[in-house]
Simulated scan of single mutants.
Amino acid sequence: MTSKLWLVRHARPEVNEGICYGQTDLAAEGHANHLAAIHLAEALNIQSNTRFLVYTSGLLRTRQLAHALQDLVPDLNIQQDLRLKEMHFGRWEMQAWSDIPKEQIDAWIDDFAQHRFGGIESCQDVLTRVIAAYQDMLTVLRFSAQYDKQCQIIWITHAGVIRALSYYLATGKSTITHVNQWPKSAPGFGEWIQCAIDIH
């Protein structure tokens, strides 16, 4: 059975441009969040027998969009998976990117997979947890009679998570070695990409 997976980035957060914020639990801008929910609701293929399963990262900015969407799309099943959080940037959280020493960024680029930029989490760590969340979701869907081909799955998450899952779905690889392998683009705030996934 093939289902549609929507990878949605949260709306613009309440933070100045150029700030590294990662897992800092910021709120989304209210108006931007409302517009993002409207645009997503308009894009969803809503039919009488369509079911939606929504996963959020648990961070406030993703929960806000899920709840705003729930006001527009009835009977959303919203679940939380902390593995869908953005990368944790440790001591660099809420620092201006321009204030982070260049040698720290270079060290990350030179050992992109394993270097813990900020001291907490590496890109490989992020990739591993995102793949685990995805595989666990597939397992639940395979063994749940509730979710048939009419079910659409929505992840309301973050740019890093979307890049990680996009890399895995495109390559089938659970490891990464070089920065050039990492997807360069991600949806803008409140935007999304769609993927066809095989539940079987």
Rank of each mutant, 00 (worst) to 15 (best):
I176T: 02
I156N: 00
N180P: 00
Q104G: 15
H115D: 09
P101V: 13
I193V: 13
Y168L: 06
A159H: 07
S57K: 00
Q114S: 11
L82E: 12
Q95P: 01
R83V: 10
Y55L: 12
L165M: 09
L165I: 09
F112W: 12
I156W: 00
A145D: 11
A27M: 08
L72R: 13
I193F: 01
A11F: 06
Y167E: 13
R51M: 06
A66V: 06
T2D: 06
W6C: 01
S48N: 14
W92G: 05
Y168E: 06
L40N: 05
I100W: 05
A113I: 14
F189L: 03
S48F: 11
D148C: 14
K102Q: 15
L44P: 08
L141R: 02
I197K: 00
D110S: 13
H200V: 14
M137E: 09
I156H: 00
Q79H: 07
I199H: 03
I120M: 10
T175E: 08
A196G: 04
R129A: 08
P13N: 02
T139C: 04
I100R: 01
N33Q: 10
H67A: 14
I100D: 07
L76W: 08
I100A: 06
I100Q: 03
E29R: 01
C151M: 10
K184D: 14
F117G: 04
A41S: 12
H115V: 10
G160H: 15
Q135V: 15
S122F: 11
W192Q: 05
D136Y: 01
Q114T: 12
F89M: 04
R63Q: 06
A196I: 14
Q23H: 10
Q23Y: 02
D110R: 14
M87N: 01
L44A: 11
Q104V: 08
W108T: 11
G58I: 08
E29M: 04
S122V: 14
L60T: 12
G172R: 02
Q152E: 14
I162M: 04
V15G: 02
E14F: 00
V161Y: 04
N45W: 04
H67L: 11
E42Q: 14
G18L: 11
I197A: 00
A32V: 09
K102A: 15
I156F: 01
D136Q: 09
L141D: 06
R142S: 09
V126H: 00
T177Q: 13
Q80H: 03
I153E: 02
D75V: 08
S57W: 02
H39Y: 11
A186Q: 05
F143A: 05
Q114F: 13
C20I: 11
A132I: 08
Y147N: 02
L127E: 09
N16E: 15
E121P: 12
T175P: 00
M87H: 00
L65D: 01
G118M: 07
Y21A: 07
N33Y: 01
L76T: 10
N180A: 15
R163V: 09
A41R: 01
D106C: 02
M87R: 05
Y147A: 03
K85Y: 00
T139K: 03
